[in-house]
């Protein structure tokens, strides 16, 4: 199959996805709702989105092995935080830590910081606990815990992927500057949420 045919088929498939409408034949209950609730949970909070995308941006900026190591470490450590949350074990200053993660990760991207990989992994892993805790405590009653968990793990991973994809502009000189500006934007957004967490 030549490239033109592939392109046309891909576009048709994308178009099919875009125009697809939901089948609202049944009321929401149980398992499917649990999965989609989990999938939408990280995306519904802009503070989460900023931090997750920033992880991807920073990973892309640091290059291999950080580019894949950070998205591998994050979900597993986040899951530990999630377990704490769902067991009802309290963590102090969760909202503050989530906002602070966006500020610090944004600053890392803005300053193009290149710490040792272990330091980067510890920093990202530390904040992952708080993000996971927030997801773990917010399972709606009556929904499947496992599917909810699957949903928020997958959504978080996709947000990292988006960050990495955007971060690939780092290979071009103008892209490097744009990426640093994006880092500044993430840090500012994080500062806004940090303000909100205190007041």
């Amino acid at each position: 199959m030549d490239s033109k045919k592939r392109l046309i088929i891909s576009l048709i498939l994308l178009l099919t996805l875009i125009v697809a409408t939901p089948a609202l034949a049944h009321i929401e209950r149980g398992e499917a709702a649990g999965f989609f609730t989990g999938l939408s949970h990280p995306v519904s909070g802009l503070d989460h989105v900023l931090a997750m995308v920033a992880v991807g941006l920073w990973g892309a900026q640091l290059g291999a092995p950080a580019m894949w190591l950070l998205p591998v470490i994050f979900p597993m450590v986040m899951a530990l935080g999630g377990v704490l949350g769902l067991l009802g074990i309290p963590l102090p200053f969760v909202e503050v830590a989530i906002a602070l993660s966006a500020v610090l990760l944004g600053i890392m991207v803005m300053s193009e910081a290149r710490p040792p990989i272990a330091v980067a992994a510890i920093l990202v892993g530390f904040f992952a606990v708080f993000h996971g805790h927030a997801h773990g405590t917010e399972l709606p009653v009556g929904q499947s815990g496992l599917l909810y968990s699957m949903g928020f793990v997958m959504a978080t991973g996709c947000l990292h992927g988006i960050g990495i994809a955007i971060g690939l502009i780092h290979r071009w000189p103008a892209g490097k500057i744009a990426l640093r500006i994006a880092g500044a934007g993430v840090a500012l957004g994080g500062a806004f949420f940090l303000w909100g967490a205190f007041y």
Binding site: V72, P75, M76, A79, V83, L146
Partner: peptide, 15 residues
């Protein structure tokens, strides 16, 4: 890593 993370969470639900 996502699957392992789901396993950790499933363990939490089990507990």
């Amino acid at each position: 890593s996502w699957i392992a993370a789901m396993g950790i969470l499933l363990l939490g639900w089990a507990v």
